[in-house]
Amino acid sequence: MATQHPSDSQCDPLYLSCIVPVWREAATIGATLAHLQPLRDSGHEVIVVDGGSDDGTARLAAGHCDRVMQSGRGRAVQMNAGAQVAKGDILLFLHVDTRLPGSALAALDRFRVSRKAWGRFNVRLSGRRPMFRVVAWFMNQRSRLTGIATGDQALFVRRPVFEALRGFEEIPLMEDVELSSRLRLVSRPFCVSDPVVTDSRRWERHGTWHTILFMWRLRWRYWRGDSPETLASLYQSDVRDASES
């Protein structure tokens, strides 16, 4: 079902709020916000939501974005908190290790005048291994076929739709899948072919095939009905095992 939007909204200029949830990202927050400076230069806002970092992340972000705020820890909690104070008509949720393409604003302006309620970008992994291109291709095809997006794809949504759906469900994992499952009942996603680039460090640290199989295992268990809390525990255990190996 297509979402109806006020006819005059197509005449309004694009006003974007980019919401970046962070936790212990002192090493990367500077580069992330430098990459987003062109958005601010174009009149859009960047909001950093810190989940209680103890490494100075919030201090390092101050002055390089429009607002730094504190919230409870958890990506869904943080993104909802950012959305509550955002001023933009379109909300863009961006992971700290994901980079937008140079064409992002033009793509989002096309989305603005479309009849879609939400959308996402294709994704590319930053590493140079040929296998990463294959992985990204399958991620993008899966998303196109299912209408489900993950956070690595820089999900964006019209603010009235986000508010009507009461935002992200505040669960410890799969909040992006859960929200896009509800969003696709409103409309199919607006798909941007120019990819965002997501850091491949997780894939390199854990191993490509291990990461593929593990993430599919998590998603299968989620669709089977396992609780997000159980899946989050499995995810954290996998992270610990990788760091200790």
Rank of each mutant, 00 (worst) to 15 (best):
A83V: 07
V49N: 07
S71K: 06
L218G: 05
I90P: 06
V48Q: 03
F138G: 04
V113G: 14
A149G: 11
T211C: 09
A107I: 05
C191L: 10
D97T: 12
E25A: 05
I212K: 07
G207H: 14
S17P: 08
F156I: 03
A107K: 08
G167P: 02
R202V: 05
G147P: 08
P228W: 13
D55V: 08
P21L: 05
L36I: 00
G82V: 11
D54W: 07
A31T: 10
R159D: 07
Y235H: 14
C11Q: 03
G151P: 07
L16W: 00
T57G: 05
T198G: 10
R129P: 09
G30L: 14
E178T: 02
Q10P: 04
D41V: 13
L36D: 00
G51F: 03
W23L: 09
S180T: 13
S181Q: 02
V123H: 02
A34F: 12
H64M: 02
N122Q: 03
V49G: 06
F156L: 12
T208Q: 13
S71C: 15
S7P: 13
A104L: 10
G43Q: 10
F138P: 03
R224T: 12
V135D: 15
L218N: 05
G102A: 08
Q4N: 00
R142E: 12
E229M: 01
F156N: 12
R129Y: 11
P195M: 06
T28M: 01
R221K: 14
R124T: 07
T28P: 00
W137G: 09
R158M: 11
V161D: 03
G102D: 09
R40Y: 04
F162K: 04
T32P: 02
I171A: 09
S9W: 15
M139V: 15
V85C: 05
A76F: 09
F93W: 02
Q37R: 10
G82R: 08
Y15H: 11
A154Q: 12
R75M: 14
M174V: 03
R166T: 10
L105E: 10
W223Q: 10
S245F: 01
G88H: 12
D199Q: 13
R120E: 12
D55I: 04
F111C: 01
S143L: 11
A106T: 11
G225C: 02
R182A: 03
A242Q: 07
D109Y: 03
D238F: 06
H5E: 14
F132D: 15
W209I: 14
S243F: 05
Q236Y: 10
A26R: 04
A117S: 04
D109M: 03
R205S: 13
D55F: 02
A34H: 10
A58D: 03
Q37P: 05
G88M: 05
F111T: 01
R202L: 06
T230V: 15
D238Q: 08
A86T: 09
L145Q: 15
G119Q: 08
D238G: 03
E178C: 00
C18W: 00
D50K: 01
W118F: 05
R184D: 00
I148T: 12
S193F: 00
T32M: 07
C191F: 09
L183F: 07
Q4H: 00
A136T: 13
S181I: 01
G225A: 02
E163I: 11
A81R: 15
V20Q: 07
W220A: 15
E178A: 04
S103T: 06
L94R: 04
S233I: 09
R166N: 11
E25D: 04
V48W: 06
G52K: 07
C65A: 00
